[in-house]
């Protein structure tokens, strides 16, 4: 645990030294702003309802771009060797990187509060669903980042890491839809495994412990696998 802040600090530093953070955040804000305006015009309603779904979709596309370099770059440049031969545990490295990427994710979604500001100026929004949606976004961010982190630990190529990360997240998103094609335990499992269903209740203003547990446990599982995968160089 001792070295988590050290790793975290370096990763954050590296995010803001490279253009990636700025590019990703700009793209995200432009795109979500555009869809916020569109939804507002269409629904004529003081809520984030429609906008949040498009925001969620952009996060799904952009989070793997944030996480792609975390391990892939270290493996490619060889710095993994100096990193892993210093007195630091694999968990510290994984968790430090996870927190750094999650922080960047938070920095990315924070400016969307300006939409909320607009809504309060020109209307009278219900804050319940807004707060719960942001709790949902945070939990979902943890899951997205851990998926990207895991994928990054498997490859030395950043582009591969980003593409596989995006594909994995899309799969995770659409298997929820598949559940509507049938009944029984199989479709029920798909519905539970997919992120969409859990996300939807947050947008409705419901903070259900089942959904919270879904995100937290899934994130923990993925982080655990990542630690094991980083460790695996020791027994491969």
């Amino acid at each position: 645990m001792r070295n988590v802040p050290t790793i975290y600090q370096r990763e954050i530093m590296s995010y803001f030294y490279s253009p990636i953070a700025y590019v990703v955040i700009s793209v995200f804000l432009i795109a979500s702003g555009f869809f916020f305006a569109g939804n507002l015009q269409f629904w004529q309603e003081a809520s984030l309802k429609g906008s949040l779904d498009s925001i969620q979709f952009f996060l799904l596309l952009l989070t793997p771009v944030i996480t792609m370099k975390l391990f892939a770059d270290e493996t490619k440049s060889g710095t993994i060797e100096t990193l892993m031969t210093s007195p630091v545990t694999d968990f510290d490295v994984v968790f430090g990187k996870f927190l750094a990427a999650l922080s960047l994710y938070i920095v990315m979604i924070l400016p969307t509060w300006i939409f909320v500001l607009f809504l309060t100026i020109f209307g009278n929004p219900d804050f319940g669903p807004i707060y719960s949606s942001y709790i949902g976004l945070l939990l979902m961010g943890g899951l997205f980042v851990s998926v990207g982190l895991l994928v990054s630990s498997f490859t030395r190529n950043q582009v591969v890491a980003a593409v596989i990360g995006i594909v994995s997240l899309i799969i995770l998103w659409v298997i929820g839809f598949l559940s509507s094609y049938g009944d029984g335990w199989f479709y029920e499992t798909l519905r539970y495994a997919g992120t969409f269903d859990h996300w939807e209740s947050f947008t409705k203003g419901i903070v259900d412990t089942r959904d919270v547990i879904y995100y937290l446990s899934f994130t923990t599982l993925l982080l655990f696998i990542t630690v094991r995968n980083v460790e695996s160089r020791k027994w491969r």
Binding site: S14, Y17, S77, T79, E81
Partner: peptide, 9 residues
């Protein structure tokens, strides 16, 4: 290590 990997940023 050989090739001296550093964080180049």
């Amino acid at each position: 290590p050989e090739n001296v990997p550093l964080y180049l940023d």
